[in-house]
């Protein structure tokens, strides 16, 4: 009798522990986690891709480590979202004044078919001078997009042309290359500059300690 009840308690305790572990996993890493799709961008140090900047120089995630980074995807044949994002970012950089010089600001095209180095150079020339434009092969662009857990898709339009659906969020990384946060497309502009400052300050506190 006593043995059986001890076993019973033991089994119940194990069951409770198992349940607690399961609930913990569910809430932290599992489907109940704070980011339901678990699609948090990798640290820049864990990404691997080789692209070319608008001045023809080879670049990759390593190029960005050492300074806080603001990075986003788009394409130069985009009439609405991309020029708006680039104009918004130009405004944020103006608001940061001289501090903007500490930032890497990169626009990666998701349309390498049309956006070659020359096209990127011409296009970004109309925006804040800190903004750099990166392009490359379709394969390397796909690798980069995957590292950021972003998405893009080519969509045919009725004029026989095509457009690109793509993640329009701006990604922020600290100087160590760790993902900090995103600035979403419809977020009020007032939130953007403090977020950028946060990514920059994480670098400073790291440096101070």
């Amino acid at each position: 009798m006593e043995r059986r009840s001890v076993l019973g308690y033991g089994a119940a305790a194990l069951g409770a522990l198992g349940l607690a572990l399961f609930v913990g996993w569910w809430q932290v890493d599992g489907p109940g986690g704070p980011e339901p799709d678990g699609r948090r961008p990798l640290p820049l140090t864990a990404m691997e891709f080789d692209l070319t900047d608008h001045q023809g120089r080879p670049v990759g995630p390593d190029t960005l480590v050492g300074s806080p980074t603001l990075i986003f995807f788009g394409f130069t044949y985009c009439p609405d979202v991309c020029p708006t994002t680039l104009a918004d970012i130009s405004g944020w950089l103006d608001a940061l004044g001289e501090d903007a010089e500490q930032l890497n600001v990169v626009f990666i095209t998701v349309d390498p078919e049309r956006d070659n180095v020359e096209a990127m150079a011409e296009y970004i020339g109309y925006f804040h001078p800190a903004i750099r434009g990166w392009t490359g092969t379709e394969q390397q662009i796909a690798l980069a997009v995957e590292g950021f857990r972003a998405t893009y898709e080519k969509v045919q339009t009725d004029g026989g042309d095509y457009t690109m659906n793509h993640t329009a969020s701006v990604f922020l990384f600290d100087a160590e290359g760790r993902f900090v946060t995103t600035i979403d497309y419809h977020e009020p502009r007032d939130f953007a500059v403090p977020k950028i400052r946060r990514a920059m300050n994480e670098e400073k506190t790291e440096g101070a300690t």
């Binding site: 979202v81 993640t167 329009a168 979403d184």
Partner: peptide, 20 residues
């Protein structure tokens, strides 16, 4: 030649798309 009204929509994942 082809002026048309389009709408940009951005979903919860932050993905923007455009449609006539």
């Amino acid at each position: 030649m082809m002026p048309k009204i389009h709408r940009t929509a951005t979903d919860e994942q932050g993905v923007s798309s455009m449609s006539p």
